[in-house]
């Protein structure tokens, strides 16, 4: 697999074999195999839209492997504010660094950046479209927990309509033949166009409205937050959100061994009583963002093979 110089824009750019290699390299990094390989490398972090968690994760990934970062955390301090085009900002920054990570509110911004940059561009979120490093770290966490990505039963719960995280993850898991169960209120179902794409790749999935309708236990339940903004009526929001919270008693239907994941931040959709249980792997999932991003940076910069 040739990763040197490549941009990481969309999970759609990666066939199954490449995803497997990236997951494997991430676990090697986590085990300490490639320490210090980002020494003397400079990463530009361009956050045209603030996202403290993602930015800190990239900066920590870079610094703890010997690299450095430059950049901005908010479009207000960047030249974009002065009316410079995105393409021109990227053409300039590309001369100051070895790689660029960017978040931008407009869909396709990272693709455009990858076309004009002379260094690899890593997409850290482009509007409602893609956030591929999140998908990779989700897969790394599943591989770490189960030793495989195939042959798993995975439930996705909550807001499946607007959550780009679950759209990308569902597509990636389909490549590995996962059995998927989408659990959501009718108004927040997995969108038709995502379901079309899942059908195209022969995905095995079903849709239900409540975990009580599960006919088999799950290996993983991936929980997403239902946001207030999606509802015109606050009481309707409270009623729906309340029905999609996970506590200890849920494991009677999920199965004692079911692992719970969440892209964080969590509000109250997962009861804190789970935090200390073996079922809860969401904090480890967040921490896996570091080795996953280090592996991706190392691969595109040619220091991890």
């Amino acid at each position: 697999m040739e990763m040197l110089g490549r941009s990481i824009v969309s999970i759609r750019d990666f066939p199954k074999e490449e995803i497997q290699t990236i997951v494997q390299k991430s676990l090697e990094v986590k085990a300490g195999k490639w320490s210090g390989v980002l020494k003397d490398k400079v990463l530009a972090t361009l956050f045209f839209e603030p996202s403290t968690r993602t930015r800190l994760s990239f900066e920590s990934a870079m610094v703890s492997m010997g690299g450095q970062t430059i950049g901005f955390a908010d479009a207000n301090v960047s030249s974009a504010k002065k009316g410079e085009s995105l393409a021109d900002t990227i053409r300039t920054v590309t001369g100051y660094c070895d790689a660029i990570v960017m978040r931008h509110p407009v869909e396709g911004a990272a693709r455009l950046a990858s076309e004009v940059a002379t260094v690899p561009v890593i997409n850290a979120g482009d509007g409602a479209n893609q956030h591929p490093t999140q998908t990779f770290l989700d897969l790394v966490t599943i591989q770490e927990e189960f030793g495989r990505l195939s042959n798993l039963r995975i439930g996705m719960l909550g807001d499946l309509k607007y959550g780009r995280t679950v759209h990308s993850l569902a597509k990636a898991l389909s490549l590995f033949g996962a059995q998927q169960v989408f659990i959501s209120p009718p108004s927040l179902r997995m969108p038709g166009y995502t379901q079309e794409q899942l059908k195209q790749v022969g995905a095995d999935y079903e849709e239900i409205e409540d975990i009580s309708e599960l006919t088999q236990e799950l290996d993983v339940l991936y929980v997403t937050r239902i946001q207030k903004e999606r509802f015109a009526d606050f009481q309707e929001y409270e009623r729906v959100a309340g029905a999609y919270t996970i506590n200890r008693s849920a494991f009677e239907v999920l199965g004692e061994k079911c692992r719970v994941m969440h892209p964080l931040p969590r509000v109250d959709e997962i009861s804190t009583e789970l935090d200390e249980t073996e079922n809860a792997i969401y904090f480890r999932q967040a921490h896996n963002g570091i080795p996953t991003r280090q592996a991706l940076l190392g691969l595109v910069l040619g220091v991890i093979q």
Partner: peptide, 28 residues
């Protein structure tokens, strides 16, 4: 982004020849 920056659009054809669908290279 094609409606925000001055760049040419770019679509890929998918589906059958007689009933094509297209995918935007940028917003996908």
């Amino acid at each position: 982004i094609t409606n925000v920056e001055e760049i040419p659009t770019h679509f890929k054809r998918e589906g059958e020849l007689t009933k094509p669908t297209v995918r935007c290279r940028y917003c996908e």
